[in-house]
Amino acid sequence: MARRVRGLSDRAIAWLFVGPSIVLLLAVNIFPLIWTINLSFTNFKANRLRDVEYIGLRNYERILTDTDTWNSMQATAHFLFWTIFFQVLIGFALAYLINKKFKGNDLWTTIIVLPMMLSPAVVGNFWTFLYQPQIGLFNYVVEFFTGIDSSSFSMIGDVNLAPWSIVIVDTWMWTPFVMLICLAGLRSIPDSIYEAAECDRASKWRQFWTLTVPMVLPFLMLAVLFRGIENFKMFDLVVQLTGGGPGSLTTLTSIDLKREAFEKWRTGYASAYAVILFVTVFGLASIYVKALNKVKER
């Protein structure tokens, strides 16, 4: 009786439930992926009426030998590494502080997470004002603490400072996210473990390194994964802030890809570019997830 519903087998019912999801997945994920791979071997331009020709691996060859592509890869790597580094460092430190019980704890938590609730485009826009040499608060603060004339340097116009200007803004905006994940990790550690450590006369320092860090590590790694994926495709904030400049110093791969696809309309070329980025992210994420699982198993 339980095995059949109006003549349908369990397998049929199972297909009935998962079928729509599978169809949707095929339609919005798998088909576009296959189509993109197909287009990556062509000279197709979406804004042109001319015939499409298959040109083999030519697009891949051009992308991988193009110095501009490698420059944007380098800019992305710099952005990824330093944003994750600072966000993990500061996020964990903030979580550690917030986890202590003190008056106004909830209020401070709310204040700290405010930046991540803003739109990246808005954040990019108003940081252009904060970075303004004549009127910007950021330059003023730097002058206040260091004595360097605020109008003598431009965070988004200087070759050496511009890559750091986007790191600073992204760190300001997304550190709270890492903090929240770390906080969840810290709060999941039972007090009894610390009490046992106290009984064993373990120092606070030892408790931190042998209990807190290992137990929060899976959460921290999850935060790194999320931020890594997000920042690999970072676009809006940087476009608003620097437009990819000065020169191409902050032209991240997503900005480069967008320009190829929707400004130059080199659809075939951009498809190949997207496939390369997809393989890179997918490969790195797979390795990372395996490492994450190993940490969890410990």
Partner: peptide
């Protein structure tokens, strides 16, 4: 030209690189 954007983008990049970034 129909490809004006493909002509514009490298000009933006090359000129900005020299004039603003000083490279």
């Amino acid at each position: 030209e129909p490809s004006y954007a493909s002509l514009l983008l490298p000009m933006q990049s090359r000129v900005h690189n020299y004039v603003i970034a000083g490279q």
